[in-house]
Design a protein around this nucleic acid. Structure first.
Lengths: 337, 337
DNA sequence: CTGTTAGCGCCTTCAC
DNA sequence: GTGAAGGCGCTAACAG
C-alpha cells in the first residue's frame, strides 16, 4: 500500500523505532541517521500517517467547530466567515486541525454535537450561532473537554467558556451617541429571544434609557435578525402615534431592512429618522445612507475562541472573555429635531 | 481510559469481535446480542473511536477544503461562506468530515497542500481561491486523489476536476442587457491575471463586443478584485477623452468601488453611467443604486464540488461541471444617451 | 545511540 | 452465531 516507516527502516537496515525517532527529530538519535532517514523518506515519497499517530498518542490535534443556525442568521455570512478565518488561523498556528460541522445536515439530526466530538476525539470545540433553546445545551454543559461558545454564556458548565464583545458598553456607546445628537425618543429593534445577545442588548438598552428617565417598553420591537423582520418592525414603528426620532437595531441586517422600510414609506434618511445597527457587516458600509453601527472584531473573536480552548487544554478552567465594542460612525444618524 | 468495545465485551461475557459486529449492525450476529450491546454501550457511555476505525479500515472519510487567498479576495466573505455551506451540507450528508485549511497560516507555509492532504489521508480535496501563479499547482496536478477546484480549470490533471458558472454566457448576458439599453461604448474592469475567471471573463467580453464591432482594448482596465482597485480603475475611466457610457466589472466588489468613485466625482447613477457587476455578493443589494450583477449559485457550487469528488472516489475520472449564470437586474443600469 | 517488545482500538479473516 | 489470532502504522518504554 503506501510507504510506512517500516519501508524506510528496511531500506536503511535499521529499526522502525529508530526511523520514528528520527522523523520526530528526537535527540536520542544521531544526526547522521536523521539525515539518512529524511533522505530516504523523500526518495520514497513518504507521508506520515496522522491517523496512526493520533491513535497511538491518543491525541487528535483537532478542534471541532460548529456553525449553527445557518438559515436564520443570514448576517453570519459576513460575521461567520470572519469568525472562521480567525479560528483557522489560530488553530493552524498551534498545530491543530479544524473539523467543521454545520446544522441542517443529517449528521447533526442523528447525533448530538457532543457525540460527534467524542467519536472524533476532538480535543476541544467551538460553537457559533447557538440558540438558548437548543436541546443539546444540557449535554454541552456536561462536556469533558474544553468548549468555547461565541456570544453565548452558559452557567454551571465547568468546561465551557465564552467569548463576546461587550454588549453593555457597545449598546451604551450607540445610545450615548444618539443622546448627544439630541434624540430622546429612541426605539429598539431587537433579535429573537433565543439569542443571548438579544437579552444582553435589551438589558443594556433598558438600563441606559431608564437612567436617563426616558425608557418606554412600547418602543421595543422584535425581529429575528433577518432583513425582512427588520423591515416589518420598522413599519410598526411608523404606525406609532408618536414615532421615535431614532432607532437602535440589535443587528445590521435588521437595520438594513428598517432602512428600506423607512425609505419605502417616503422618509428621508437620516433627516427623518436616525438609525444605528450592530455587527458592522460588510454591507453596512454600502447602504444609503451608510450605516452607523457597533462593530466587533470578529476575526479576533475567532482567534480568541481558539486560545480559550487551548488554555482549557492546558489545564485551566474555561475562561470568559469580553472584547471591546467600537462605534463606527457613518451617515445614518442626524441631529435631532 | 475511555470505554472501548472490550469493556462492553467483558461486561457481556462475549468477545470484542462480537461487539464490533453488533455495533456495525452486521448480519452475522444475533439480534439479541445487538440489543444487549447497544444497551450496554449506552450505559457505559461508549463512543466509537473514529481514529482507530479509520486506521484499521484505511479510510478517513474526510475531505480537505482549502480556502486560499483570503486576504486579497475580500468578496469571498460572502461567496466563500456560501461555498462552504454547500460543501458542508453535501459532505456531511454523505458521511464525510470536512477538514479546513487556510492560507496565511504557518502550516501552509511549511508544507504543501498535497502533503497536508496525504498526511491526514484525506480522500479528496476542494480548493477555492486558487491562483494561477500558485507554486503548488504542478503538485496538485499530480495528485493521486480526487480534487475539485472551484472556478479554476487545470489541464493535464487526471484527478482534478472543476466547477464554475458559465463565464461566457454570464458575461454575454450582462453585455446583451447593456447593449439593449443602447450602450455601445462599454468599459471593463477586470480582475488580476492570476485568477482564471479574469481571463475567461475578458475573453467573453472581447468576443461579444468584437462581434458587435465595437471592441476597444483601451476600455479594459485591471484591478485585483478589491473595492479599492475598482475605485482606482473608475477614476482612470473618467480620465478618458471619450469615457464609456457603461462599465462591466468582473466582480461586485470592484463595482462597488467604482460606484463610489463615480459618485465622488459627481456623477449621478445610473443616469451618467451604467454599471454591472459579477458575483451577486450580499452587499450588492444594498448599494445606491442597487447593483445589477451576474449571479452564481455559490451554495450549489459547493454541493457540486463535493459531488464531483465523491464521483471521483467511485472510480470515475474527474469531471468538469459548468453551472448556469443568471443576470440579476437591479437599478444600476439606465438606457443610454 | 539503537533495537526489542508491546500495544493504541478496532476490524478482518477464518476457524469452530 | 461467535471467537481467536493477527494486524493497520505508529510510538512508548525499556534494555542493550
Amino acid at each position: 500500500m503506501s510507504v510506512t516507516i517500516k519501508d524506510i527502516a528496511k531500506r536503511l537496515g535499521v529499526s522502525a523505532t529508530a526511523v520514528s525517532k528520527a522523523l520526530n527529530d528526537r535527540d536520542d538519535v544521531s544526526e547522521e541517521l536523521k539525515r539518512k532517514v529524511l533522505k530516504v523518506a523523500e526518495e520514497l515519497d513518504y507521508s506520515a500517517n496522522t491517523i496512526a499517530k493520533r491513535l497511538v498518542t491518543n491525541k487528535s490535534n483537532t478542534i471541532g467547530v460548529f456553525m449553527l443556525s445557518r438559515r436564520e442568521s443570514e448576517q453570519r455570512e459576513t460575521v461567520g466567515f470572519q469568525f472562521l478565518s480567525g479560528i483557522l488561523e489560530e488553530a493552524n498556528k498551534n498545530g491543530y486541525d479544524i473539523v467543521l460541522f454545520s446544522t441542517n445536515s443529517d449528521l447533526l439530526d442523528e447525533k448530538s454535537y457532543i457525540k460527534l466530538c467524542k467519536e472524533r476525539r476532538v480535543e476541544g470545540a467551538i460553537f457559533t450561532g447557538l440558540r438558548l433553546d437548543d436541546p443539546h445545551i444540557p449535554e454541552i454543559k456536561k462536556a469533558k473537554f474544553p468548549i468555547t461558545i461565541i456570544d453565548t454564556e452558559l452557567d454551571d458548565a465547568e468546561n465551557v467558556g465564552f467569548i463576546t464583545t461587550d454588549n453593555l458598553s457597545g449598546v451604551h456607546k450607540a445610545l450615548e451617541y444618539l443622546w448627544k445628537l439630541g434624540h430622546r425618543r429612541i426605539a429598539m429593534i431587537n433579535g429573537h429571544h433565543q439569542a443571548q445577545v438579544s437579552k444582553r442588548r435589551y438589558q443594556a438598552f433598558k438600563e441606559f434609557l431608564t437612567q436617563k428617565g426616558v425608557f418606554d417598553e412600547d418602543l421595543v420591537f422584535y425581529g429575528d435578525f433577518t432583513k425582512n423582520s427588520g423591515y416589518k418592525a420598522a413599519l410598526k414603528i411608523l404606525e406609532l402615534n408618536e414615532p421615535p426620532t431614532a432607532v437602535f437595531s440589535a443587528s445590521d441586517l435588521m437595520a438594513l431592512g428598517a432602512i428600506k422600510a423607512f425609505k419605502d414609506k417616503g422618509l428621508i434618511l437620516p433627516r427623518d429618522m436616525s438609525i444605528i445597527g450592530y455587527d458592522n457587516i460588510t454591507s453596512s458600509e454600502y447602504t444609503d445612507p451608510s450605516l452607523t453601527t457597533v462593530a466587533q472584531d470578529s476575526v479576533n473573536m475567532g482567534r480568541e475562541a481558539v486560545r480559550l480552548v487551548l488554555d482549557g487544554l492546558d489545564g485551566g478552567t474555561m475562561k470568559k472573555k469580553v472584547l471591546e465594542a467600537k462605534l463606527v460612525i457613518r451617515d445614518s444618524c442626524a441631529r435631532c429635531c
